[in-house]
Design a protein around this nucleic acid. Sequence first.
DNA 1: TCAAAAGTGTTATCCTTACACCCATGT
DNA 2: ACATGGGTGTAAGGATAACACTTTTGA
Lengths: 335, 335
Amino acid sequence: MTDVAPTQSPDRTADAAIEIGLNAAIVGVRAYQPQILVVRDGTDADWDALPYGPFSPQDHRTFEIGLRRWVQQQTGLELGFVDQLYTFGDRGRHAQPGDTGAHVVSVGYLALAPHGAEPDLADAAWSRWYAYLPWEDWRDGEPEVLTTEIEPRLRRWAAQPLRPTEPARPLKRDERLRICFGFDGGGWDEEKVLERYELLYESGLVAEAKRDEREAADAWTDLPALGRPMQFDHRRVLATAMGRLRAKVKYRPVVFELVPEAFTLFQLQMTVEAIMGSHLHKQNFRRLVENAGLVEATGDMTAETGGRPAKLFRFRREVLLERPAPGVRVKAGRA
Amino acid sequence: MTDVAPTQSPDRTADAAIEIGLNAAIVGVRAYQPQILVVRDGTDADWDALPYGPFSPQDHRTFEIGLRRWVQQQTGLELGFVDQLYTFGDRGRHAQPGDTGAHVVSVGYLALAPHGAEPDLADAAWSRWYAYLPWEDWRDGEPEVLTTEIEPRLRRWAAQPLRPTEPARPLKRDERLRICFGFDGGGWDEEKVLERYELLYESGLVAEAKRDEREAADAWTDLPALGRPMQFDHRRVLATAMGRLRAKVKYRPVVFELVPEAFTLFQLQMTVEAIMGSHLHKQNFRRLVENAGLVEATGDMTAETGGRPAKLFRFRREVLLERPAPGVRVKAGRA
DNA sequence: TCAAAAGTGTTATCCTTACACCCATGT
DNA sequence: ACATGGGTGTAAGGATAACACTTTTGA
């Protein structure tokens, strides 16, 4: 075991250049549409990219401090909640035609921009996150792209024989479709965003699969417009971020960073719906957040929402001391 | 924004050596005691270390493949469930007296060793994980170390004024104690393993804090034996792994990797209790796993458990297709 | 006979889900 | 008048937690 002894220098890392970068999926909500901060620099077929920053250990003590710093410096945004998502180290994830083979490890982060915050930057801008993953927005019913494009193509893919190079999996293709996309009465789980994206990638239905010259891509289907693609594996990072945020909303009071200081319950509900991508039962939502102790009335009212004037509420901080995992425990899917 | 444009080479990473390593918290259960695979190489005051392997991009396509490979080669263990935990990049985390300042980023993993698997290796061995985090085992009631050592010292720490260099936090020290350790009727949340370890580190009560020469350490208290320390930040990785596994058990059928192919419900329960560190209500546990559809009777019986012979069960794979998040949804804390 | 573990049955309570219905405002 | 959102009440059903009690084995 001398080879894995921790005091040994891991010298095998020296024979290839390794770079470490930070990728941030910065999320805000404007007009009840979740937005993601993207960079458009005109290269790479105009595909958008997530903000990318180098990690420089001598400047910043931790990843998170470094991330907050460069986001602040480059965009003026003061981030709220920040959460490490995943570290992506796949060989060739930054591979480009004619590349030298330098290997980049990137640490993906989810970050929330406080309500109302605007980036002051020319080539970075908010962009609707459902533009990249349109099958995730069920607020106007089942997304059309799912029934017209995704379902028939995925069913064809499931009917195809496995490629010989394909690794053995515990589940068959059609079982995976049932679990991830809810085909055949499987039910839609709004948290499985990453699993869905990866299945679309694996089946070659997503533009990035063709770009990466995967065996499956384009061999058996022409590519429809399944969401706007992104550079590198940034759409995978975005999918990870969306899944994580949807899960987190249920047991941490993170929504309140995406909402003004004072809000009506309906505004709060629409913000949650924007994130979850589905509608919630109004009365149950109100009871839920109220007797979970998440909010308290400010005493003020507002008439700006149309209809009867509404009470304004604020986040009730004391809930952090009262419950181990305070959050909006919604079961998505109601109307 | 040119500085953060993704197509630019992140050249600021070049001016310090960066190494990437993989750290694995490999968990098995023997005789209803969770075990962790540790390396003892005699250096560094005989502190144990987690198995550590270099990441070599040209040998392995992904982190996980690389991890499985070197664990297999070095220990003969064929890992089951593998989950990325967190990427630790703190400056100085590998700092040693007289160090050159090389910076190591380590990607921490949780891995499960299938039931019965034994490492065939001289200087790596199973070691009880509660030896490192003894306050996490409530199976014999509240751990003594909590009442005799931890609680009084943490209360003294909470009463001390904040150090001037300390960053502002949303919660006061005594509020954090209530949340993490359940003081003053806060209740014990078995998933907050990492939060508890980090609080002990921050308050200087853990040997690693003194080693790292934190300001707080030893300035106001002498160190008791608060669990066995580990090299580098490996105990933090272990705490992360324990918290993650405790959470995961509830919504993924991971326990079944730690249990023989056929098992009695009581054996399953004791395995879950070993992980959660607390006792469960027997009848409710049985009903829970049975009508969650997690198990099915094999038809056989065993008399080896003492007492009345018990039915043997096996994991019911079909549950993966039936429920979005199948797991042992226990609420810990019952007797 | 007793201890230990396997099982069965029941009850009270809470939470979720789903309906039904009324209130206040702007157009 | 009516559309829109605000707000209250309640009833059915299911899941959970906590008890009590019987059965079958080995020592």
